[in-house]
């Protein structure tokens, strides 16, 4: 202790050359404020504020004749979500689509992840990694267009299935699910693959050694160990699917999603659009709550 004392004296004597740094060093709160000023302006000023404004708007009313939005307080916008059969059906349909996309993504991601992480040669692994992340590099509309061309009336599926006497899914809810799976699959595949890579290969050997066949090993060793990754991926696939409307518009035929209704109300009836925007938020919050309850977030 005695040997450090002179060193401290030395340092404070040179502090006068950098007054700003010295001041910040002496005042930790000021330092913290400097660090957080810009992100907080963004987060609170733009991000939270606009979200709050939207929620407030949901309680306002639209003049049915002039389509002018008037501040006020009404629960009618929210009530109509439940009382209008089309709105309620659309909410539930969207929830179903988002869950289906999540399940399909997981069903693809787990076997693919096991193959990539534990079986594929490094070369093949690289090729697959590029293939999986490829959708992230292309524009959103480009991918929708690709799916549209593939599933259209004279598209690949109908052409390929025609000799068998059946037609492809066409533009329907199935195609919406497939398109959203295509769009969001990387968000599931990447964390799942990463998690599987981290499982020591010895655990697979040990499981087989003790008598477990492949399926038992996947169920009792792989799935429990990658559960956090599956849930992290599912939060993306689920919430991104809930908010989408472009897929429904271009490959969904008559399929409507929550986004479709919000989009059609944005100009006509902003308070209604705002009220409907709360629905996916509630779904995501409920989902996060369920995930949290399962205890999986502790490992994230």
């Amino acid at each position: 202790m005695t040997t450090t004392a002179p060193a401290r004296v030395d340092r404070s004597s040179t502090a006068g050359t950098r007054p700003l740094s010295t001041m910040l060093y002496r005042r930790p709160r000021l330092r913290l404020a400097g660090l957080l000023a810009i992100p907080m302006v963004w987060l609170v000023g733009v991000y939270i504020f606009s979200l709050a404004m939207m929620l407030v708007t949901a309680f306002w009313v639209t003049d049915p004749f002039t389509s002018k939005v008037k501040p006020g307080f009404t629960l009618d916008n929210f009530a109509s979500i439940f009382t209008t059969p089309a709105y309620l059906a659309t909410s539930l349909r969207t929830l179903g689509i988002a869950l289906a996309v999540t399940v399909v993504c997981a069903l693809f991601a787990v076997p693919l992840g096991i193959f990539m992480a534990k079986i594929a040669s490094p070369w093949l692994r690289g090729v697959l990694a590029v293939a999986i992340t490829l959708p992230l590099w292309a524009g959103y509309l480009v991918k929708i267009l690709a799916m549209r061309i593939t599933f259209t009336e004279e598209g690949f599926f109908n052409w390929a299935l025609a000799p068998l006497g059946i037609t492809g899914p066409g533009f329907s809810i199935v195609t919406v699910i497939l398109t959203l799976t295509y769009l969001w699959f990387p968000y599931m595949a990447v964390p799942v693959y990463t998690a599987i890579r981290q499982i020591p290969v010895n655990l697979f050997d040990a499981s087989a050694d003790m008598g477990a066949k492949s399926w038992t090993t996947i169920r009792t060793v792989v799935l429990p160990l990658i559960k956090p990754a599956l849930l992290a991926g599912s939060i993306f696939t689920f919430s991104l699917s809930l908010g989408d409307f472009i897929a429904a518009r271009f490959v969904g035929g008559s399929t409507q999603m929550i986004g479709s209704i919000i989009a059609s109300n944005i100009n006509l009836n902003p308070p209604m659009a705002a009220a409907f925007s709360v629905v996916p938020i509630v779904f995501v919050l409920l989902y996060l709550f369920a995930v949290r309850k399962s205890g999986a977030l502790r490992n994230l």
Binding site: P200, N202, L203, D205, A206, S207, A208, D209, M210, G211, A212, K213, V221, L225
Partner: peptide, 18 residues
């Protein structure tokens, strides 16, 4: 296959299920 053989293995880094 390993699961059909009457032998068991103790692995170098134990391979316990975490």
């Amino acid at each position: 296959a390993p699961f059909d053989r009457d032998v068991n293995t103790v692995f170098q880094d134990y391979a316990l299920f975490p």
